[in-house]
């Protein structure tokens, strides 16, 4: 097990597109344990993407269960994730392990239908909503070389567009 170094912007490697995982072997699963140790040992976060530790493959770890009162599917290793449907838009505040000391408002889909593979290559599918859906979308952006900085909206947008149910 090893704790991996987290890349921080302006490291240009964070802007590159990651490749699909094709081989689901013990090396992959060893990397997942390292990724988990890195997330658990670092600053509190609800997810981490492989490119954040310099491995440019389509791999995420997401776990929003540390946040109270939030619907979640527990700790998820998501390989080759794909959003196949989405609904609604909601603005909320995000920060990033790779962008220290800055947070901003970002618009994301409220509900997503997600397909992915597990660490053995078996198919997974989830319907996610709210905070967990946001976490997956934030992490998936890392796979395409995007940071939340690429999606900032102003504070006033939140103020004017926020809908109360």
């Amino acid at each position: 097990m090893a704790r991996l170094e987290i890349l921080t912007f302006p490291d240009e490697r964070l802007k590159q597109v990651s490749q699909p995982v094709e081989t689901f072997d013990d090396r992959l699963r060893q990397f997942l344990r390292d990724l988990e140790e890195t997330m658990d040992g670092g600053p509190p976060s609800v997810g981490i993407a492989a490119p954040q530790v310099g491995r440019f493959e389509r791999i995420l770890l997401v776990d929003v269960s540390i946040k109270p009162k939030i619907k979640n599917h527990g700790r998820l290793f998501l390989i080759n994730p794909r959003i196949v449907a989405e609904q609604g838009q909601e603005v909320a505040r995000e920060g990033c392990l790779s962008v220290p000391d800055f947070t901003g408002n970002v618009s994301r889909a409220e509900t997503i239908e997600l397909e992915a593979q597990d660490p053995y290559g078996s198919p997974l599918s989830f319907t996610m909503t709210g905070f967990e859906a946001r976490a997956v979308q934030h992490e998936m952006d890392h796979l395409d070389g995007l940071l939340f900085l690429d999606r900032l909206v102003s504070r006033r947008d939140l103020f004017r567009r926020k809908k109360y149910k």
Partner: peptide, 11 residues
């Protein structure tokens, strides 16, 4: 008046 929590996502 409306009060909402700001739950900042770090990821």
């Amino acid at each position: 008046t409306r009060v909402t929590s700001i739950n900042t996502l770090i990821g």
